[in-house]
Design a protein around this nucleic acid. Sequence first.
DNA 1: CAAATATACTGAACACTGTTCAGTATATTT
DNA 2: AAATATACTGAACAGTGTTCAGTATATTTG
Lengths: 203, 203
Amino acid sequence: MGISERKEREKTEMKQLIMSAALKMFLEDGYAKTSIRNIADAIEYSPGTIYLYYKDKDELLYEVQGLAYGELLTAFKKNATSTNPVEKLVQIGKTYVNFGLDNPELYDLMFIIRAPMNVDETIHKDNGDQTFDFLTDCLKECISQNLLRLKDVNMGALQVWSMSHGMVSLNLRCRLKIMEMTEDQVRETLAASIENYIASITL
Amino acid sequence: MGISERKEREKTEMKQLIMSAALKMFLEDGYAKTSIRNIADAIEYSPGTIYLYYKDKDELLYEVQGLAYGELLTAFKKNATSTNPVEKLVQIGKTYVNFGLDNPELYDLMFIIRAPMNVDETIHKDNGDQTFDFLTDCLKECISQNLLRLKDVNMGALQVWSMSHGMVSLNLRCRLKIMEMTEDQVRETLAASIENYIASITL
DNA sequence: CAAATATACTGAACACTGTTCAGTATATTT
DNA sequence: AAATATACTGAACAGTGTTCAGTATATTTG
């Protein structure tokens, strides 16, 4: 019988409806300022309904994070295409930083917001791992071609990620205000710093 | 008349009472999970009383931040004492990272938590600037002695701070779980990475 | 010293939050 | 047509930051 299939379809459609409304509001107002009631209002359902499709607000977050990790990977694949692995590494760094500057609320919810890290939620881990692998693969290539001072992939990944994340998150929290720059200057300086940093670790 | 002076004294004592209770609870349970009512209960006053001494919860945060920036500066002065500016730079980085790992809730509230950045609140800006200057002064020394590949103090400060902050904050948000390390390994790896990074930018 | 005033504090109330769940209305199966 | 299963509601619960009329105490004034 096709009824149960239609029901299944309706269920995923409903999840998508909730998800798209939630995502839109997260991007506009941020995760914290978006309430379940607001989301419910937006899709013209009662608050309780959302809990029939998502266990709690965190589960909405996890799904958005998974999607966002995927988007970041897409950005990497689009922008970090150099065949020179060191150049590619620079492209990865710049793409990461620009992604954060261009999507502040998304970046916030991907990497800064406090929420119990979920272990299950396959899309989350899968996309997260794949995105991270894009970086480590590039580093492996750099190291195997003996292009970097670094010999350890993990340490390289840690450095590049920490540097990039540090730049984005300090800027998002207005901590770079101490350096008195316009928004454009921040963008330029961050890009130049990524470039300079990778030049420094290049042999 | 000594009455107004006693009143003044009582007022600062009351602020201190609130502050010390708030700080204790922030460190134990985190800023977000500490409520004004909890603080009021702890000092056996009504919630409304706290608002007679602090405009809102953010103002409590700003004061704690100011104190914490001061503490970080103290840690710098204690641990980053090398006369060799590059060595000193390494000490600053390691001290920063350890400070974050040792005081996770404090670090969270200093640099990660989302709150409208306050412009006034002198202790805040003063301590923040002084702590930042400790880093820039060291970098100026490094650069003036031509010890680094870097020639721009601002870019150096940005790199060192971003790298250190990135490491601490990614770890605090469990994002380094992807690298599968024990807590001790994380500590070692972060320290080694700081060292390795500064070695890389050293001439 | 008593009355008037100033100060300190209270705690109920407001408008929110995430979450739950008995009850209802609709759809499906018997 | 009756019984059952599903989907949804919206009031209720316990919590949040914040405000403010009212009270109780301390100080000043006549």
